[in-house]
Design a protein around this nucleic acid. Structure first.
Lengths: 69, 69
DNA sequence: TATATAAGTGCACTATAATGCACTTTATCT
DNA sequence: AGATAAAGTGCATTATAGTGCACTTATATA
């Protein structure tokens, strides 16, 4: 079973001890946008997602679905 | 080294022997949108990406970046 | 080589993501 | 408890993704 994407972001951000404000400014994504994203609102664009992922040292991958992992 | 997301989609679609038209109608994403996406134009939303991934039996994952794979 | 089928392009319109601002609520400190 | 920082919400505006339509270009097939 997987974590939701927004939870992954939130968890990773906290693991790196960044505030939403930190992550917003480091990634160049507006704070309002990041906040919405983390509470599961909205429908972020790939570009927005990538900006955030980049700062978190993560990447977005499209993979064949597998049971579990 | 990774394939671009749009190339992954295109390759997977072809592997499943679907035309863009097939994939568009199966996924509920407009043909024009899919076409743009596959040539690397645009900046799809997560929802759009997911609709397509679903039909392709794929999923979008956010993972810690690793060298290669 | 015709002819059909699939893929790609330009453009205008509509829907909605991204943003800023002001504010409230919830944690985290002395 | 009071102060401070972090997280969450509502709303209006701007930027842009998603779409349909008409058309062109490329690829496959008879």
């Amino acid at each position: 079973m997987h974590q939701k994407l927004e939870d992954t972001i939130k968890a990773r951000r906290k693991a790196l001890r960044l505030s939403q404000e930190d992550l917003a400014s480091l990634s160049g994504v507006a704070l309002r946008t990041l906040k919405a994203l983390e509470v599961g609102e909205g429908n972020p664009s790939l570009r927005t997602l990538r900006k955030i992922a980049e700062v978190l040292g993560m990447e977005i991958r499209l993979e064949v679905k597998r049971l579990d992992t």
